[in-house]
Design a protein around this nucleic acid. Structure first.
Lengths: 337, 337
DNA sequence: TTGTACGCGTTATCAA
DNA sequence: TTGATAACGCGTACAA
């Protein structure tokens, strides 16, 4: 049924070794023979079986991407940039979506051993040391994007600096009562996007000689309704904040919805700034801290390919910068007497 | 280095055949032997090599999804629903993003022959008969979602009916000068989303005894800036439309931006309705024709799995319905004297 | 320069 | 109930 290398060899009147050499552009094939083989290949419309090739070469040409596809548009956009970069390098992308902790653990513990993919890209998900050790032992190349683990090359954005930019900007606009809606912290608390944003906020406050009031901080899911619920509480406080910094754009959008429900005008009554810089933020003219999404994907892929070539490299920690984008949801605070 | 079935057999003191039987839960293994094998497997932390298995079984456990990942959020959301359904069925998802016609043709002609995936899901992309024949011959199961080809099971939404719903709704709101921004038509014109929406519009007009003025139709890319450009032209006409129907939500959002630039109020000066029902539409309170995105993904996957089990089925054409969602961008036309 | 034989890690067949 | 052995389709030493 399926035509194999033997069929080609027979038609071309050569041995399978020669056919293989032609396919792989190995040297030492007489031009005339090569031509015969090539025409046999064309005649039979033959394609080498990738599975059989993988069997010997131990490589599949595919990269596994582990990503919480559904939690935030940020992840989708990150996935896109990864896809573009992989495609350019001729790699296939196998998508491993994790929706639950169980699924994540399954991927972490099984994927590295199965060798279905040549390398792994981990997006945004925290990696426990326990699993990190297994992955290290399995020897599969891996790069972490938007998450950090000391064992592997990790690309992160400077979340502290990003949050600092956001809050400093609000303070400069004259805001003093600033609410903060953080995202829930998953995994290791030491290296964590949410925690870093918390730290950045404090730095900005400290630098301005101000004190952040703990009751102005809420934690919510990283989504719209989470942000909305938290904002409803923040905005119902006796002395409500005049500005809110949300740890993600989707939460910030929830804040805007909450404001609307409470008949508060954005930005007149309340300034809102998000974090991520997803496309929707632009559509809604939301001020935000822009993450270098494209760069994260591109650089992550190129680092991974590097490691796949030279496996013995030391892990790097690469920190990328964020950019403040002031749009229509923030404005100077004017006290209304 | 990597532990194989032979290692397990040696440790357990059995033949590799027995180990294989244990792994695959084949009957006819004495409980005691099974236990010995199992403990050897645990001891060595052995995992069967999927590549080697595929070599014999001729199956990879993976489904290839061919999708224009970048053109519209609609595709991303469709991809999501496909991912969920595949994951539930324990299938891996290999993502083939097509950005150019060349890339699409490459996938269409090579993917079916390579057997890297057990089945193919084609999202939104038109499939020429020429390629369809090749795919048919290669014998790989395939299901088309949001696109149609007579040779294969295809899931489509009723674009004619959807466009009809949209335009009928605008007419019922009292609008008479209705602009239509269609998307560019790719591939076969006979079965085409854009063309069908065009037909649906005409049906609504005809039924109301009205005539659609050709100068009220523009064609643009399926994105925001395309919609915006087209809308700028539409809204600059001598007698500009009082309502605009866009063939996609992103184009509709472009229309809203154009209206804002021209200092026209939506919906007071101009009603806008889109098509797709993507998440952003909800955020922007855009009236739209909702496609059954989740259903498309789920049903597409289940049909594909069906076909993979029983390959000789006749192709089906499954048509799903759209739903009108009236939100804040449409309102009754009140002539202003 | 070319052909043959072996091995990759598994499943399946068949004889014991 | 089990073990040896032959595929699966390919790359690659090695011999010719």
């Amino acid at each position: 049924m399926t035509t194999t290398i033997h069929d080609v060899a027979r038609i071309a009147g050569v041995g399978i070794g020669t056919v293989s050499r032609v396919i792989n552009n190995s040297p030492g094939v007489k031009p005339a023979t090569r031509k015969r083989v090539l025409s046999a290949i064309a005649q039979l419309n033959y394609r080498p079986n990738p599975i059989a090739r993988s069997m010997i070469s131990k490589r599949t040409g595919a990269i596994g991407v582990i990503v919480p596809f559904f939690t935030r548009p940020f992840h989708t956009e990150l996935l896109r940039s990864v896809q573009v970069a992989l495609s350019r390098s001729g790699k296939e992308l196998v998508l491993y979506d994790v929706e639950t902790a169980a699924q994540r653990n399954y991927y972490f513990s099984e994927l590295p051993m199965l060798h279905r993919v040549d390398g792994l890209l981990l997006l945004s998900l925290p990696l426990d040391d326990e699993f990190a050790v297994d992955i290290k032992e399995a020897g599969i190349p891996i790069v972490l994007i938007d998450t950090y683990c000391p064992f592997f090359t990790s690309l992160i954005v400077d979340n502290i600096e990003g949050a600092y930019q956001a809050v400093k900007y609000l303070i400069e606009l004259g805001h003093r009562r600033i609410g903060f809606i953080n995202g829930v912290i998953e995994g290791n608390i030491k290296f964590n996007q949410a925690n870093d944003r918390w730290i950045g906020l404090h730095r900005a406050f400290g630098e301005a000689g101000l004190l952040f009031e703990p009751e102005f901080m809420f934690t919510s899911e990283w989504n719209r309704s989470g942000g909305k619920q938290a904002a409803l509480q923040l905005l119902s406080l006796q002395k409500r904040p005049t500005a809110i910094f949300a740890a993600s754009d989707m939460q910030a959008i929830g804040v805007i919805e909450a404001a609307k429900d409470l008949h508060l005008n954005v930005p007149d009554d309340i300034s809102v700034i998000g974090f991520d810089g997803i496309e929707v933020a632009e559509l809604l003219e939301l001020s935000t801290i822009q993450q270098p999404i494209q760069k994260l994907g591109e650089l992550g892929v190129s680092k991974l390919l590097e490691i796949m070539k030279k496996p013995q490299q030391l892990p790097e920690l690469i920190r990328l910068n964020t950019t403040l984008i002031a749009r229509r949801t923030t404005r100077a605070f004017a006290s209304r007497l």
